[in-house]
Nucleic acid binder design. Structure first.
Lengths: 145, 145
DNA sequence: AAATAAACCACCAAGACAGTAGGTTGGTAG
DNA sequence: CTACCAACCTACTGTCTTGGTGGTTTATTT
């Protein structure tokens, strides 16, 4: 599994906020109600998103969450970088990876690197704006051809 | 993490056997010695590979493991299909996935499907023969351009 | 029969995953 | 000022996967 529910929920929540299309603060309860996911669990995720500046939260009555920038400014890669420990397909490509002794002779490393680049490029090309509901909701697929 | 050590070790072991280039049975002890990985752990993996016909094992003196076909006949996808529970990047695309109620309205599913296809195509295009040591050991990269 | 090597079975520690529970802080409305 | 509300924080939990280890059994060759 490359992407955990944490990452997937994060994306869904951000899409949900983006689709409200008002600059008001949206209550978490409403979001998780619409998305049918656990409010308590998503609370943790929102704290993560808030701390990393992807979202802005306001306490108390009339409070909730709001995007900090335009949906087109959210690359999926940016979101996943926050929620996922690592997006590397294999352990040896992780940031904290101890330099493998067999690196020079490794037959498989080029393959993993190629895959890694492919996945990263994929997530760097897609933004929140590509995923929100609209008439042509496969635009990001077209733009890749 | 998309690919566990189980899958990576499996590929490395198969490459190792392929590179011996003799049709003799290769002792696991020699393989894990060269690859510097745990023999005990790889035992489990070999049983898996053997049961799935990727490799042929023979007990006793003079025994060991042997490939059952030409390296070019081993797609990386075939190997990983055996060792990894799932190659799906997300849970909702797994074989045993309960049909998601929100499928029709899901904004993210097309993206996951696209990613899934991309990864599968990647692993279907590469074979063991592409990974064994040779003069031009980036042939599979070139062939993708 | 002895040596050898795969195969089988059972167990284990650490960590990730997907939550849950309950309390605290800070902002708004009346 | 008080009540309310919603984000925020800390801690805990059960389940599963990962990456092993140990010991025994089965099959083959010498």
């Amino acid at each position: 599994m490359l992407i955990s529910t944490r990452g997937r929920y994060a994306i869904r929540v951000l899409i949900d906020i983006a689709e409200q299309a008002s600059n008001d603060f949206i209550r978490l309860k409403d979001i998780t109600g619409r998305q049918e996911i656990s409010q308590k669990y998503v609370e943790n995720i929102m704290t993560l998103l808030s701390k990393n500046g992807l979202v802005e939260g306001v306490h108390g009555k009339g409070g909730g969450y709001r995007l900090t920038r335009d949906p087109s400014e959210y690359k999926i890669a940016d979101i996943l970088k926050v929620t996922e420990e690592s997006l590397s397909p294999v352990a040896c490509l992780e940031c904290n990876a101890q330099p493998c002794k067999r690196l020079a002779e490794c037959r498989t490393l080029p393959m993993w690197r190629e895959l890694n680049d492919m996945v990263n490029n994929f997530f760097n090309r897609i933004t929140l704006a590509d995923l929100v509901k609209k008439d042509d909701n496969v635009s990001y697929l077209n733009s890749m051809l």
